[in-house]
Design a protein around this nucleic acid. Structure first.
Lengths: 288, 288
DNA sequence: TACATGATATGCAAAAATGCATGCATGACG
DNA sequence: CGTCATGCATGCATTTTTGCATATCATGTA
């Protein structure tokens, strides 16, 4: 039994169609079909039912995929192991962080790191998605959360607080008449205006909700309303000022996390040498 | 990273030379060399030192082999899983047994089984070596031992006793003069004549020792000496008779063993239906 | 019923992997 | 000190694998 054929079986079980599995593997779907037949010949079992809308795994196919998953885990563990043992400061190194953290904090660190170690092929994945550090979708991740997570290594870079922000003109207007209706720009994760609004401002309602902080920020800068933002974010936006609707309030911390194995690799250690002083020096920017 | 290249790394670590790994994999050694380079390129690590007398794995190479071993275990587990789920009475089925057990007991069972289920491609491995049932070197094994072993399924087919045997003429000679020197033919696993020899026969010494029971049997049949043999073996040899040097004595039992997964497969179940009655009916042949 | 969509098969040419033949290096042995 | 056995490297021909173009088939929709 060919091991790469087994991996192909796994991909087909996951993607359900030849073309899906093919593009996941970087192969033509024809190749996938042929590898599946080969795997079936070799194993002597029918692994898939051929249906009009795709390949459906049989019990044997599911069993094959389960075992192939184990093989994949071993392969990923190896890849981490090799990366961990790599003492050179060269080759690919992938960092992921929320988009909004990159500009004000990470960019300078990245530039300094790259200047000192030009042989490292630094790649940044700017996303709020939690990339799978087990699969080495990234080597290190900056995350905003309350816990480092599972069996990952973690280092708290900063404790954060939030406050309320708006454009100067909206801020002045509210200050002039605290009873004016106050429109809030929210993230969809909250379904009501913040609870601890200063009672001098009684007239709050939700204007808009977004599933991402970038448009929240955009709408707030456009003067549409008030937003509760992490201190660093409100402060780094030149068009916004803090307004006293909310007292500074604890928020999820900023963590650097990485897989146990990768954490001790040379590139990872060196990267932390650049990153930590930056956050240590600017720790107060995250607090009210 | 190509999975079959990883499997090649594992083979090379195990066999230490390109040609050894190649023949283990059924490949030309050139192919092995090229796959190794490919694996090194893909992983970005040097996996072997090229020495004059073979490839020596680096730390990274050893690590790769360890993980590839995990992958291999998963592959073997899959292969057993598929065999276990195979409800057809067709295709390959491998039985192993000690050579001497096959003629008098197993042959008839095999013939009957094959007659009822001609689509099963029955293969017999006649050897005293313990084949690896995890690796499916055999599906079922008859073994002479005190325990079924590890995490294998086992069924005791017979309890055995031993006695002393010789040719009729040697037997008569000893009977006539119990004080005559008695030459023993032994297996190398014992380094002295049996302890419980009847005191009427005081004059014992070792004549020859063999590492296999077949030459022990041969030498005994040639009239060279006396051997302690399992009852079934002494009795099934037409040229031998039991002599009263030793009272019947407990010996290792005969077990049918198989891997947990394979045990429940259709071919395995059906084979037991043929095997068990044969041993049950002839149980007394193993006792003195 | 005609048609668009999204899937699987299949024949053929290009690309990649493999095996073979040859040459070279090293160590054991007489 | 030559000979032999064993193992690695490399160029070339062959075989196998892959991708592409095209055909087919089922399904939902107007």
């Amino acid at each position: 039994m060919n091991w790469d054929d087994l991996r192909t079986v796994l991909a087909l079980v996951r993607h359900r169609t030849l073309s899906g599995a093919g593009s996941a593997l970087g192969l033509n779907y024809t190749t996938v079909a042929r590898r599946i037949s080969r795997a079936e010949d070799a194993s002597g079992a029918v692994l898939f039912e051929r249906l009009a809308d795709g390949y459906r795994p049989t019990d044997a196919g599911l069993s094959a995929a389960r075992h192939a998953e184990k093989m994949e885990e071993a392969e990923l563990a190896l890849s981490r192991d090799l990366a961990a043992g790599d003492e050179t400061l060269s080759g690919p190194f992938i960092v992921t962080a929320p988009q909004l953290l990159i500009g004000p904090y990470l960019a300078a660190v990245l530039a300094a790191f790259k200047a000192s170690h030009p042989a490292v092929e630094l790649e940044i994945r700017a996303t709020n998605d939690l990339l799978d550090l087990n699969r080495r979708e990234a080597d290190l991740a900056l995350r905003i959360s309350r816990e480092p997570g599972d069996d990952l290594m973690g280092l708290r870079l900063a404790t954060q607080e939030t406050a309320s922000f708006a454009t100067p003109s909206l801020a002045a207007q509210i200050e002039a008449d605290p009873k004016t209706p106050i429109p809030w720009i929210m993230h969809v994760s909250a379904d009501a205006p913040p609870k601890k609004i200063d009672p001098r401002y009684p007239n709050n309602h939700i204007l808009l909700r977004f599933d991402d902080m970038i448009p929240v920020l955009g709408a707030t800068r456009a003067g549409l309303g008030v937003a509760r933002l992490p201190m660093f974010l409100g402060r780094s936006e030149p068009g916004l000022v803090q307004i006293p609707l909310l007292a500074p309030q604890a928020y999820a911390d900023i963590w650097l996390v990485g897989h146990r194995d990768i954490w001790r690799s040379a590139k990872s250690r060196k990267f932390r040498e650049f990153l930590l002083p930056e956050f240590r020096a600017r720790r107060s920017e995250f607090l009210g």
